[in-house]
Design a binder for these strands. Structure first.
Length: 1062
RNA sequence: GGGCCCGUAGCAUAGCUGGUGGUGCACCCGGCUGAUAACCGGGAGGUCGUGCGUUCGAAUCGCAUCGGGCCCA
């Protein structure tokens, strides 16, 4: 054992520990230690390899690390392979940016091979940067060999699943409306769409009804550019629609508008007057045909048979009639299929109109809005601007469009019931994450569009014959190489695109150009992480995962994609238990974002307070599943707790070292808590108490962790350090630390303190791995495991738990508080002894606790005697209070005299007389009055020097602060001692050093009080080899002293001189 | 527009199987001090987001509404 630094420096401690872990390869050794034990299969949700980690990413990995460190301590051989998500559009966009590209054409001109190579380099570089950042957070995952979605092995696992989907008939190719980014020129998933407010035109348009001149259907839209693709109008069959004659500037026209909306629509169109001619249910309108108002501008529109159809999604808003363009809307598309409407989509992948769009050809769709409005001419009934939420590409932030395209889908609805059944079998923390949130999400799930028209991703392993259109899905690279006769060096584009396969029909099969949605990559993590399908043993032994944990955003992300892929492949969920955690927000509960400037980086916190404080803060601040509102003040508070842990740890070290203390060990030389387990029955009561507390704490921590109540576990630990160890046990045990002789009480104190620290670091190790390692390494015996992280987990020593003692000690602490309050009221400092302290209570448990722990109470209260009185303490007197309401009627104008007499009377005598005879007399001579209970009430009266304070638990504490010579002498002696100790400290003396002392007191009486026994007491307490204590004015004190100070002690000047003994 | 979660003193948080609202930090006053840029006691500070309802009684249950977050449309 070495002494510890006098103040905790996170930087020093953590750097040293990290150095030790590196030098000794501790992480590997911990893993080796558990090899061969029961496996615990954890799967890391792969962060995307772009940019740096933020507080949320840090929180995520810290939760994982805390859980896994504990599982290792519990004896499991933990599968802890880190993972990275490395394909996809975000990286493509970053690389495009670096190269100054603006379109897919730029990429193709540059060369797909070169482009993909740059994407790969980007992903690999950022993977390494992030691994280093995670390591800096003390995260022990396997970053040496992480699974990477770009690896051949991983790609193969995705292929294998797609082949299963094909076998089950779940893989579909179809013409669908998808979210389309016109800049990236690809379909993007619903989950890749970000919404924010955008200003758009809000227009009301007249569609001329066929064969009825001057009669129109009125529709509303915010996307004028979709009008060239209009093929129908939807109505609700049950709504009432009005046929209205409307007048504007003298001209009349007939308009169809939903009845309730006529007024508002016509006002927007600035019509001066109108008459409702007739009303009809929507069902009557179905089948009406109309012409496109853009027929002149878009020739293709002339060929389209426009008609009114019924739909369930129409709402009583705007005009109650919905413009239908199946090529540009999801609902429109489904309705179009159902109604046999044409799917017309005159927009290309670049977001520009094609030749089918007539005069609009070549225009980017959103830019074409103005042109369309112009072409509408008199058909435009009204135009406003609306600000509404509109979707944008998550990477390039361009507004998305909806576009009907050829895509690949997984038919999720076909396996939805199975997925819901699996959700119910998984253990969710919290429960509602699965039963409510995830369940509802999956219940609404639609087909999953898995294809993207991009370059950097897992290629979709589908080959289609250019002659007969037959298709083949390859599940492994070997299978593809077999069929093609070619060797695939790299499964990425463009290499894989070069592979052709002969078709049975004699034609040639070529790969479809698409790549997978990145979510389809990470969906395979649970089997790819153990090398499936190439290697099967691990998979069969381990899968599905025992535990995963990710943020609530992954409900629609990784929790979902994994469940989907796993249901396709194995008909079951890929995880047994899931902890869903919250989001890291700023102090105001707002999302951290660069544009708000409210981002707090993990590095910032680490630089100020260290990794352990960051970890303990993140884990204790709130429940894992609640959003975390980052708060610097709370971080400071946690920092304080960690500092106190350090202080508590270092407090006994100098004494232990001085005494050459070594904890009692087993025959193998390891510490096994042998001393306390064997001797606890005979140990001092405060030792037994703290041993019980630590054991109870361990049991509580265990229970909390079983439910992933990480915040409760960590808060329990922090509270124990602060309340039980620092504020109580250390205070109680302190005197025993400097007992000179080899006393059994001292051994007991050392063994207890040692036990407390050993158990504490064991329980804290998963959460604050550095400081616990530093403490453990200093405390461990040579035969003990080298690292705290090699220890076995503990749920506490049940045999040390003594509930009754814990309750009794709670009572003593309440007593301690009450004494302090009473002393404060009596203005008697704790340093000054008092003669008597009395606890008045009718509560036998309180009485028993005080009496059972009387010596402790006396020491804490600095009281010569502590007594319990069951009913009434005889020293509490009664003060008589006159009752004027009774005195007035009885004594008339003598009332004030009686009042004064009662106030002066001895309340105790008065009360006794009244209780005995029912009446009493006050006054003397001629003025004697007889009073009864009607004239007086009694209040408690404390003797002059007694002060009271209520104590929780039906008790009151009374402290008699009166001084006699002896008490006063001790008080002054303690005042002198405290100041001499302060001087020792200023001289920076070691605990074992002796001093010589000279004290001159500017008060002869006090100097006399201190002479004799008290002088010896002072010598002993301050470790003085000689002392000269006298009244000042006599011979001058020694002139030479290491330190001389003049003190004001309770108004008396004392000059003290201290020298270290040579 | 829908689903889920959160909303308690200046800040953070406990209580949420209904019975007079706790704790920590910060603040003010006092004390202690051989852990000492620690520690202890006391005090002040709350419309438990808002409204309505159920109940003898609601922070706690129900409905509505507002604000924040994640997700979906």
């Amino acid at each position: 054992m070495k002494e510890a630094a006098s103040s905790y420096s996170a930087q020093d401690v953590e750097a040293e520990v990290r150095q030790y872990w590196d030098d000794e390869d501790v992480y590997r050794r911990v893993k080796t230690l558990r090899e061969g034990a029961t496996r615990f299969f954890f799967v890391d949700g792969p962060p995307y390899t772009t940019g740096h980690i933020h507080l949320g990413t840090a929180w995520n990995k810290i939760i994982k690390d805390a859980v896994l460190r504990r599982e290792r301590m519990r004896g499991f051989d933990v599968v802890d392979r880190a993972g990275y998500d490395m394909h996809g559009l975000p990286i493509e966009v970053r690389v495009e940016h670096e190269l100054g590209f603006t379109s897919k054409k730029d990429i193709e001109d540059y060369g797909i091979a070169e482009f993909v190579e740059r994407c790969k380099t980007f992903a690999l570089d950022h993977k390494d940067i992030m691994s280093e950042q995670f390591r800096q957070l003390g995260v022990w995952l396997d970053f040496e060999d992480p699974y990477q979605t770009v690896s051949e092995e991983f790609i193969e696992s995705a292929w294998w699943v797609l082949q299963r989907a094909e076998e089950k008939g779940l893989l579909e190719r179809g013409h669908r409306v998808v979210n389309w980014c016109p800049r990236c020129e690809t379909a993007i998933a619903d989950s890749e769409v970000e919404y924010w407010d955008e200003a758009d035109p809000s227009i009301f348009v007249k569609f001329p009804i066929s064969g009825r001149d001057g009669e129109f259907l009125v529709i509303w839209t915010t996307t004028p550019w979709t009008l060239p693709a209009n093929v129908g109008v939807a109505v609700d069959e049950t709504f009432t629609y009005a046929r209205v004659k409307a007048v504007r500037d003298g001209a009349e026209e007939i308009l169809w508008i939903a009845g309730d909306l006529v007024e508002s629509v016509l006002r927007k169109g600035r019509y001066q007057d109108y008459t409702v001619l007739e009303t009809h249910p929507g069902s009557d309108l179905v089948g009406i045909t109309y012409e496109s108002p853009l027929a002149a501008a878009v020739p293709a529109q002339k060929e389209i048979a426009h008609r009114v159809v019924a739909a369930g999604f129409v709402e009583m808003e705007n005009t109650g009639m919905v413009h239908i363009a199946p090529g540009h809307g999801w609902d429109d598309f489904l309705l179009g299929i159902a109604e046999g409407l044409e799917v017309f989509c005159p927009v290309g992948g670049d977001g520009r109109f094609t030749a089918d769009a007539g005069i609009f050809e070549g225009l980017a769709v959103r830019d074409a809005n103005e042109e369309v409005l112009g072409a509408l001419d008199e058909y435009l009934l009204a135009k406003e601007t609306i600000v509404h939420r509109y979707g944008h590409c998550w990477r390039c932030k361009m507004p998305i469009i909806y576009r009907a395209t050829e895509q690949w889908f997984i038919a999720i609805p076909a396996i939805k019931e199975e997925m819901l059944g699996e959700i119910a079998r998984v253990a969710w923390y919290p429960e509602w994450a699965g039963s409510a949130r995830f369940h509802d999400f999956v219940a609404d799930a639609r087909d999953w569009c898995i294809s993207r028209q991009r370059y950097w991703g897992t290629p979709i392993p589908v080959w289609v014959c250019d002659a007969c259109d037959a298709r083949r899905v390859f599940g492994t690279i070997a299978e593809l190489e077999d069929a093609s006769g070619a060797v695939l060096e790299d499964p990425h584009r463009p290499y894989v695109d070069e592979i052709t396969v002969p078709c049975a029909c004699g034609g040639t099969m070529r790969r479809v150009e698409d790549i997978f949605d990145v979510w389809f990559d990470s969906a395979n993590a649970s089997w790819a992480t153990v090398g499936f399908p190439r290697r099967r043993e691990e998979f069969e032994a381990l899968w599905p995962a025992d535990f995963i944990t990710e943020g609530q955003d992954q409900t629609r992300g990784w929790f979902y994609s994994q469940l989907g892929a796993s249901t396709i492949a194995f008909d079951r969920a890929p995880y047994r238990s899931v902890l869903m955690h919250g989001f890291a927000l700023d102090a105001e509960g707002r999302k951290m974002s660069k544009s708000f400037g409210n981002v707090v980086s993990p590095e910032e916190v680490v630089a100020k307070f260290g990794v352990d404080v960051l970890r303990l803060y993140l884990l204790s601040a709130n429940a894992p599943w609640d959003d975390l509102k980052f708060n610097w003040e709370s971080v400071t508070t946690v920092n304080r707790a960690v500092n106190i842990l350090w202080n508590v740890y270092r407090f006994p070290l100098p004494y232990m070292i001085l005494d050459g203390f070594a904890p009692e060990c087993g025959e193998n030389g390891r510490w096994e808590a042998g001393y306390v387990l064997a001797n606890h029955a005979s140990m001092p009561v405060e030792d037994r108490w703290i041993l019980s507390r630590i054991s109870s704490l361990a049991a509580a921590v265990e229970k909390d962790l079983q439910e992933y109540q990480l915040h409760r576990a960590t808060r329990g630990l922090i509270t124990c350090i602060l309340e039980d160890i620092s504020r109580w046990y250390v205070q109680l045990v302190r005197p025993r630390m400097w007992l000179e002789e080899d006393a059994p009480e001292k051994t007991s104190a050392y063994e207890t303190m040692y036990y407390v620290m050993r158990r504490l670091v064991q329980l804290l190790a998963p959460f604050t791995p550095h400081i616990t390692e530093a403490i453990y390494r200093n405390l461990r015996t040579d035969a003990d495991p080298a690292s705290v992280h090699m220890l076995d987990w503990t749920a506490g020593d049940g045999c040390l738990i003594d509930d009754a003692l814990e309750r009794a000690m709670d009572t003593v602490r309440a007593f301690d508080d009450a004494v302090a309050t009473a002393r404060q009221a009596g203005r008697r400092k704790l340093r000054w002894p008092v003669a008597q302290t009395v606890v008045v209570t009718g509560d036998e448990e309180v009485a028993g606790a005080i009496e059972g722990l009387r010596a402790l109470c006396e020491a804490r209260a600095n009281s010569r005697r502590v007594e319990v009185v069951r009913d009434r303490w005889e020293r509490i007197g009664w003060r008589a209070e006159p009752v004027m309401r009774g005195i007035g009627p009885s004594f008339g104008k003598e009332g004030p005299t009686v009042k004064a007499l009662i106030e002066q009377a001895d309340g105790n005598l008065l009360k006794a007389a009244l209780e005995e005879k029912g009446e009493a007399t006050v006054g003397e001579g001629d003025a004697v009055y007889t009073i009864t209970a009607a004239h007086v009430t009694f209040e408690e009266q404390l003797p002059a020097d007694v002060f009271a304070a209520p104590m929780s638990g039906n008790a009151t504490v009374y402290v008699d602060v009166a001084l006699d010579d002896d008490l006063e002498a001790e008080g002054y002696a303690r005042e002198v001692i405290r100041r001499l100790q302060e001087m020792r400290r200023q001289l920076d003396l070691r605990v074992e050093d002796f001093i010589t002392v000279d004290v001159s007191v500017d008060d002869a009486r006090v100097a006399a009080l201190l002479a004799g026994d008290w002088q010896d007491f002072i010598m002993q307490e301050v470790r003085a080899s000689s002392i000269s204590l006298r009244a000042s004015g006599g011979a001058a004190g020694a002139t030479a002293a290491d330190l001389r100070k003049e003190w004001d002690v309770e108004g008396i000047t004392m000059v003290m001189a201290v020298s270290a003994r040579q």
